[in-house]
Design a protein around this nucleic acid. Structure first.
Lengths: 186, 186
DNA sequence: TTTGGCGGAGAACGATCGTTCTCTCGCTCC
DNA sequence: GGAGCGAGAGAACGATCGTTCTCCGCCAAA
């Protein structure tokens, strides 16, 4: 049946929104059902357990993050602007009013200690991001040690923006990145 | 009765350890009882609800963090070394084998969406840390914009070290901090 | 029109949670 | 020694969780 894909998409995007807003354990499967309009029977046919749904949500988030970041980077001009585009991407994200930090960090903090699959998925997303940044630095001809430093700034900006809700956080991270980049190229 | 303080300390430090390792919602009050050796009746006499216990744990963590950080900073020599001592303090912490990231960030991700008191306590701790760093920067004669940048690095290092378990994370953060400090002083 | 099976609504089930209550033991004061 | 009180052990309670099951209505094929 074709609308299986539609149901999957509805369930995952609904679960994503609820889990991200309230935490995984605070959202029952019945809340996913009533918010998505997909019956419990069908949800469990698509995802045999809540853990499977959580992992599907993480995959969904990873794809969204990767495409959004790739688009922001592609829109930048010079290789150095592409490195800074990471922080413009973050700034745009932080402005969303339902922003509540990095879902991967949140899920890891909540579940990582007892769910190794979630921990592995989160770890993979973070290393993938670091590889992406390393590629941008390499394309710009920057030194190898610059990439993990920029990644640290990006991670710190996400948690700081979530907790303090300071709208200047993204700009501070971007300014620090500019300084690190400038110093790395001389 | 004097051993009320002893019971409080045992309950809070036990709850701290369990909540930090497994997440708040994954630890039942009965687990706190059996691990601390304090009866449920007494726990509820000391902390009327689990939320109160969580807030007490956050206060306990804040004190531990503040004294540990103050000690590391005091052990450093020059004002510039004191700024870098923050990252040495982090490096030492990351090496503990039960390190699982910043408890404030973890608690915020898990509960912040639905518990405004936890959110407020976490926010207060983070702003307090930023003020502390700002004081170190001011003492060293650095520009005002340096402090939030160093704080961002510290936050990013905590989450990155927790997720990737890369032992080089602290050194990368420290190196980035050195670069930012050097560029800020010329 | 009848039949058969698929899917939705939601009740049911066992487990576990936060919280309270009961029962009993041991200690203290007369 | 006996009465009374504080505290521990753990059963009990209502709620909620993840998961499964039951029932009923609908639509396709004979």
């Amino acid at each position: 049946m074709n609308n299986e894909e539609a149901a999957r998409a509805r369930v995952v995007s609904t679960a994503d929104r609820l889990f991200y807003a309230q935490g995984v354990q605070a959202v029952g499967m019945d809340a996913v059902r009533s918010a998505s309009g997909v019956s419990l029977k069908r949800i469990y046919a698509l995802y045999p357990s809540k853990d499977d749904l959580v992992l599907a949500v993480l995959r969904h988030r990873t794809e969204q993050w990767n495409t959004g970041l790739a688009k922001a980077v592609a829109a930048a001009g010079t290789p150095r602007d592409k490195m800074l585009a990471v922080f413009d991407f973050l700034a745009e994200w932080f402005r969303e009013d339902d922003f509540r930090g990095c879902a991967f960090i949140n899920f890891f903090g909540e579940l990582g200690g007892g769910n190794s699959k979630v921990a592995a998925a989160v770890r993979e997303q973070k290393t993938s991001f670091q590889r992406h940044v390393a590629g941008l630095v390499r394309d710009a001809g920057g030194p190898g040690h610059l990439a993990p430093q920029l990644a640290l700034l990006a991670e710190g900006a996400q948690t700081t923006a979530a907790i303090t809700r300071d709208p200047g956080t993204a700009a501070q991270a971007r300014a620090a990145a500019e300084t690190l980049i400038r110093c790395a190229f001389e």
